[in-house]
Simulated scan of single mutants.
Amino acid sequence: MITRFAMTNAWNYRRATNDDIVELASWRGAGSLALRPHFHDESQIVLVLSGSRAFRIDGATVTVPAGHAALIPAGMLHTPMATPGAETVCLNAYVPASRACSSLRIINVGDRWRSIDEISPKHIGEIANDTLSREPSRPAGCIDRAKLGTALTESVEPIGEIAASFGRSREGFSRMVRRELGVAPHTFRLLARLNLARQLLRAGEPIAAVAADAGFSDQSHLTRLFRHTFGTTPGVYWRD
C-alpha cells in the first residue's frame, strides 16, 4: 500500500518506496489551488477520487472529474486552475517518463477506491500502462518538443546561439519555443531550474545549497517561486 498521508488543505508530498514511482503528493480540501504554469521532468498521473481538478494546457481547459485519471507527460506545460466548491481528494504520482505515454491522456478509472490509502503502487502502474496502450502515433514532420527542451536546459549558451543551431533568428526561435513549449525560452529555463531544485531537495541537500546550485539569487527567491509553482515551500517539501 502507499504510505499513509496526513490529509490537510494543502499539498502533502511524500517520497515513494517503489522504484517505478519517483514521488507522491496528495490533496484534500475545498476545491484545489491555482498555481503558476510549470512542467515536470517526470510524467504526472493525476488521480481524482472526489471533486475535480482543472488545468490549462495548450490553450484549452482540461477537467479531470472524480473517478478519472489524467496523464500529463514529462515536459508538458500545464497550469493548475482553482476549482472552488466541493471537497476535492486527489493523488499525484510522478513516474519516470519512460513509464507513461508522451501525450495527454484522461481515462476513466471508476470508483474503485474510497480513500488514497487504498491505492497501491500496482494500481498506479496499471494506470500508467493503460495510458501507454492508448499512445497515438506521432505525426510526420512534427517538431520534437523534447529536443527543444533539452537544448534550452542542457546548454549554457545564450538564447541567440541556441536559436542559430536551429537555423532560426532569436525572434523566430522565441516564437517557436512559445508555440511548442508554451512559454518564452528564459521562462522555460527558470522552470527547469525549479525542477532541478526539486530533485536536489529529494536527495536531501540543504535548502540554501539547493538555491545556490539551482541558480537562484538566495533561499527566499527559491522559496517564493517554489511555493507559487508547486503549492508548498522547499522547507515543507524537504522535511517530507
Rank of each mutant, 00 (worst) to 15 (best):
G160I: 04
N129K: 10
C90P: 02
A192F: 03
L47I: 15
S133N: 15
V46C: 11
P96K: 03
A25C: 15
A54C: 13
G235W: 03
L104F: 04
V95R: 03
E205M: 11
F166S: 02
R193G: 03
S133W: 12
G172Q: 08
P139L: 02
M1E: 13
L190E: 06
A140V: 14
G160F: 06
T131F: 04
I124Q: 01
T232K: 04
F230A: 00
D41N: 14
N195Y: 00
K147G: 10
H40L: 09
S50R: 13
G231N: 03
T153G: 14
W11C: 09
F226A: 01
A30N: 15
R114L: 09
C90S: 10
S52R: 15
P139E: 04
V89T: 13
G85E: 06
Y237L: 06
A211N: 00
G85T: 06
H68T: 13
D240M: 05
I127D: 05
A34R: 14
G172W: 04
S220M: 02
P121Y: 11
W238D: 10
R178A: 05
F166H: 01
D213S: 10
N9E: 14
T83G: 03
G215W: 01
V64C: 10
E126D: 15
A212T: 11
P80A: 04
D240F: 01
H228A: 11
G85S: 06
H123E: 15
H38T: 15
Y237S: 02
F55M: 12
L33V: 14
T153I: 11
V48G: 09
G149E: 07
L201R: 00
A66Q: 07
E135S: 14
D111N: 12
G29W: 02
E135D: 12
G141Q: 11
I127W: 08
I143Q: 13
P136V: 07
H186C: 02
L148D: 05
F173T: 00
V156I: 08
R99S: 11
R112V: 00
L201C: 03
T150Q: 10
F226T: 01
A128I: 09
D20H: 11
G125T: 07
P206C: 10
Y94Q: 07
A209Y: 06
S120V: 14
G51R: 06
R14C: 12
